[in-house]
Amino acid sequence: MLVEDKRKLKQGFQISIGVLVFQIFLSSIFYIMYTKTKSPLLLSETFHIGIGIPISGILFLLYHQRYRERLEIEELEELKKREGKIFKEEESLILVSRVRLRQIEKWFIPAITFIITFFLIYTPLKLIAYFRGKKIPYHPSSVIPLLLIGLTFPIFILSRYILGMSKDKRWKDLQSLGSFLGVNAIFSFLTAISLTFKNLNLPKVEWFIFYFLNFFLILIGIEYFLNIIASFYISGKEKRYPFDSKILYLLALPEEVIPSFSEIIEYQFGFRITQTWFYQFIKKRIIPLLLLQITLLYLLSCIVIVRPYERCFIEFLGKPIGNGKIFGPGLHLKFPWPI
């Protein structure tokens, strides 16, 4: 068992350091793309990826200390076999990593998470204030959206791989890293889509996602802050590190939304919702239902209602068409947003 623990803990810190290097590489690439395009959204996404670097660093430190702790336990066991008895003072001198690990969990992790929280709230606010109402010279590029989509794929695969690993209790803490990468993949893809629209002279999509991303990061910062406070009151097996975001996890693994909701219901009311046919039906079809709902909501943008005192004309990609024909009050159909 000890050998298996050592192997998995070693893999844990290897994965963490590997992701850390990957995140540094990604944030560098995204920043270079920002310098080429001057896209505010690319700068925000650069920050979004970069803020995950300290989380990888924390996890590397945790798994490395746990691995060292197992080595020290082995050393202690060998010493006990040879000498028969070990005094408590000698034991504490050998198990240095255990003491160090407790200190890291008690002080270092909350402190670093607090710093991350500060930047998660402060930086998006600064970005919004800086770019709001500003005319940014954009340099169109058809290559960058393709590059973004190309980068999204390995981020997504790595996220799924790590989230799969986190099902093992010894890799449970990697869940926060997998969730972070999963949401990175989502916003990288949205950035690619928005820049494609911007190349078609439709900049509103980028601004919408820019504001959405920044307010989302502020929300995660608030969640981290609440987690820090909660970490001082929750102990035992249920304790999670404050940088382990439930919001990010549910976004990275949307299929877990229903199970998480059912856990809350069962915990609060003692009602075994997981045993009902309705739960089983929703659990199997949650993704198709969500996609259907999103599609229907999107198609609603094809409908235009012109009120009695209004008139309208048709635009295609921002340019009037149809010889400037004016349409009167009533229900009209058009191409979906943002066309």
Score class of each variant (00 low, 15 high):
residue 2 L to Y: 04
residue 5 D to Y: 00
residue 7 R to F: 05
residue 9 L to T: 00
residue 11 Q to T: 03
residue 17 I to M: 14
residue 22 F to A: 09
residue 22 F to W: 06
residue 24 I to Q: 01
residue 25 F to S: 07
residue 27 S to P: 00
residue 32 I to V: 10
residue 36 K to R: 11
residue 39 S to F: 02
residue 42 L to Q: 02
residue 44 S to Y: 06
residue 59 L to I: 10
residue 59 L to E: 04
residue 64 H to L: 14
residue 68 R to V: 13
residue 70 R to A: 15
residue 73 I to T: 07
residue 76 L to H: 03
residue 82 R to T: 03
residue 84 G to E: 07
residue 88 K to I: 12
residue 91 E to Q: 14
residue 91 E to S: 10
residue 92 S to M: 12
residue 95 L to G: 09
residue 98 R to H: 11
residue 98 R to W: 09
residue 100 R to I: 10
residue 100 R to S: 13
residue 103 Q to V: 12
residue 106 K to L: 10
residue 116 I to Y: 08
residue 117 T to M: 01
residue 120 L to M: 07
residue 120 L to D: 00
residue 124 P to L: 01
residue 126 K to S: 05
residue 127 L to I: 01
residue 127 L to S: 03
residue 130 Y to P: 06
residue 153 F to C: 05
residue 153 F to D: 04
residue 154 P to M: 01
residue 161 Y to V: 01
residue 162 I to K: 01
residue 164 G to C: 04
residue 169 K to D: 06
residue 170 R to T: 11
residue 174 L to F: 06
residue 174 L to Q: 03
residue 177 L to V: 11
residue 181 L to M: 13
residue 182 G to P: 00
residue 183 V to H: 00
residue 184 N to K: 00
residue 187 F to K: 05
residue 192 A to P: 06
residue 194 S to A: 14
residue 197 F to H: 08
residue 197 F to W: 12
residue 203 P to M: 05
residue 206 E to W: 00
residue 208 F to G: 11
residue 210 F to M: 06
residue 211 Y to K: 08
residue 222 I to L: 15
residue 227 N to C: 10
residue 229 I to Y: 05
residue 232 F to K: 15
residue 234 I to A: 04
residue 235 S to R: 14
residue 238 E to A: 09
residue 238 E to G: 05
residue 242 P to K: 04
residue 246 K to A: 14
residue 249 Y to N: 12
residue 250 L to H: 01
residue 253 L to T: 07
residue 261 F to S: 07
residue 261 F to V: 10
residue 272 R to H: 09
residue 274 T to N: 02
residue 276 T to G: 06
residue 277 W to K: 13
residue 280 Q to F: 03
residue 283 K to M: 05
residue 292 L to H: 05
residue 294 I to A: 14
residue 306 V to M: 07
residue 308 P to D: 13
residue 317 L to H: 06
residue 318 G to I: 01
residue 320 P to M: 05
residue 321 I to K: 09
residue 322 G to F: 08
residue 325 K to V: 14
residue 328 G to D: 12
residue 331 L to S: 10
residue 332 H to M: 11
residue 335 F to L: 05
residue 336 P to G: 03
residue 336 P to D: 04
residue 336 P to R: 03
